[in-house]
């Protein structure tokens, strides 16, 4: 079953593309470090979002060419960035006032696990090592929409969408939408509501790859993404 999923599932680029389609014109957006940063590459033509990074920049743009980095101008992942016209700098307390104060429209994060009640685990596997939380626990509170992008299952084929998270939580009841490699799922009223799925997977197979019940409320449309 997981071999079959590996053939049909979306690439990370395609998951990021799908998430980018829901970012509205003029939205203030924070993208978590790593995989979520990819969402910025797939902004729809004609729509402009303003990207926020925790270390005090609004309105950053592309990565600079190698050799032209200014190391006073980095993002939360410590990578060099550039500025767009109209960018702004601010201190860390103001930056997180934007986060917790409800001023961001969307935060997009990665996940180890998401539960049907919106709980998120994405900072620690709970297996020892060095704990490191960064801004994740702040970002899940305050953004008007908290979305997750993730593979639908782990590398071992185990569900990442669950009844309850088993790993240490990042936040409680915070996720509103999950974009996976197989489907788009909303979290409403304490359960998963299926909105889109790949045409190549049956509902039963999708349910089998999901650790909690997928509810159907209204239409389920095909999850259609371009080759990227």
């Amino acid at each position: 079953m997981s071999d079959a999923l590996n053939i049909i599932k979306l690439t990370n680029e395609q998951i990021a593309w799908r998430a980018a389609q829901d970012i509205q014109e003029g939205a203030y957006v924070n993208l978590g470090i790593g995989f979520p940063e990819m969402v910025a590459r797939f902004q729809p033509e004609g729509r402009e979002a303003i990207f926020h990074t925790e270390n005090g920049v609004l309105g950053f743009g592309e990565t600079p060419p190698e050799g032209e980095e200014d190391w006073d101008l980095i993002n939360a992942g410590k990578k060099a960035i550039t500025l767009k016209p109209g960018a702004a700098f601010f201190n860390h307390a103001d930056s997180f006032a934007m986060v917790r104060g409800g001023h961001l429209d969307v935060a997009i994060l990665g996940a180890y696990q998401v539960a049907e009640d919106g709980d998120l685990a994405n900072w620690s596997t709970g297996k020892g090592g060095i704990p490191a939380v960064g801004g994740a626990m702040d970002l899940v509170h305050g953004a008007k929409r908290v979305a997750v992008i993730t593979d639908h299952v782990t590398k071992k084929g185990e569900p990442k969408l669950l009844k309850r998270c088993t790993m240490p939580l990042t936040g409680v009841g915070c996720v509103t939408r999950v974009y996976t490699s197989l489907a788009v799922v909303d979290i409403e009223g304490g359960h998963f509501v299926l909105r889109e799925k790949l045409a190549a997977i049956s509902f039963d197979d999708l349910q089998a790859a999901t650790g909690a019940e997928l509810h159907i409320e209204g239409d389920v449309t095909d999850l259609v993404v371009p080759q990227l």
Partner: peptide
């Protein structure tokens, strides 16, 4: 310490606010 809480705890220290409440 979560990053925003770290920033706010330092700000609070400088602003004479001994404690505060956060959703984080």
């Amino acid at each position: 310490v979560p990053q925003g809480t770290l920033a706010e705890r330092i700000r609070a220290g400088g602003a004479g606010i001994p404690a505060f409440y956060t959703p984080t």
